[in-house]
Simulated scan of single mutants.
Amino acid sequence: MPALSPAATRTAPLARPGRPAVVARTLTELAGPTRGVVELPLRLMWNAERTFDLGDPDELLWMYENVLRETTRADDLRLLIDGRTLHRVWRLLNLPRGVRQAWESRHRGLRAA
């Protein structure tokens, strides 16, 4: 699959210093799980507790925040984030300004979510 856009310009919004935010081209391509328990790879979550019960609203938010903030891979978004769920919880997520800006620039519907 083609890479997702980290908005590869020098002025791209940053997830953290020196790292552009990775953003999906469409929300429909995000087909991650919507229930069950998910274990994040170590590259996305450095904590020993890397499992999240998606039935627990707080754990779902915590997982999404970590994936959106830490990913450098398009496949992480496709495999771990669900587009409809992301739209539903968007305003509840605690994200760095650069991540929020990058996603809302690409997906204007998130701003109104």
Rank of each mutant, 00 (worst) to 15 (best):
A31R: 00
R10T: 09
M1P: 08
P20D: 01
L68P: 01
L30W: 00
G98L: 01
E29F: 02
L4Y: 05
P2R: 02
A24S: 10
M63I: 11
R108K: 13
E70P: 00
E49G: 12
L14V: 09
P57G: 10
R69P: 07
M1Y: 03
R97Q: 09
M63R: 13
L30K: 05
T28H: 11
T26C: 09
G32Q: 02
W46V: 07
A24C: 11
R108C: 10
R91E: 10
P41C: 06
G109L: 09
L93G: 04
L30G: 00
W90M: 05
M1K: 05
T26L: 07
R25A: 02
T72I: 05
L79S: 03
N47V: 10
D53W: 13
M1T: 05
M45E: 09
L95Y: 13
E49K: 15
G18E: 03
A12R: 12
G109T: 12
R10P: 08
T85L: 07
A102I: 05
G55E: 13
N47C: 12
E49C: 13
V99D: 06
N47Y: 11
A74P: 07
A102F: 03
H87K: 15
P17L: 09
G83C: 02
V89G: 14
A102P: 03
E49P: 05
E59G: 13
L42F: 13
T26N: 09
R97M: 06
E70M: 01
E70N: 11
M45C: 14
R100C: 06
S5V: 13
R10V: 08
V67R: 01
M1N: 04
T11N: 11
A113C: 13
W62R: 15
Y64W: 14
A48Q: 14
A3Q: 08
W46S: 10
L92P: 01
V37H: 04
V99W: 01
L95T: 10
L86N: 03
L92A: 04
L110Y: 12
A102K: 02
H87Q: 15
G109W: 08
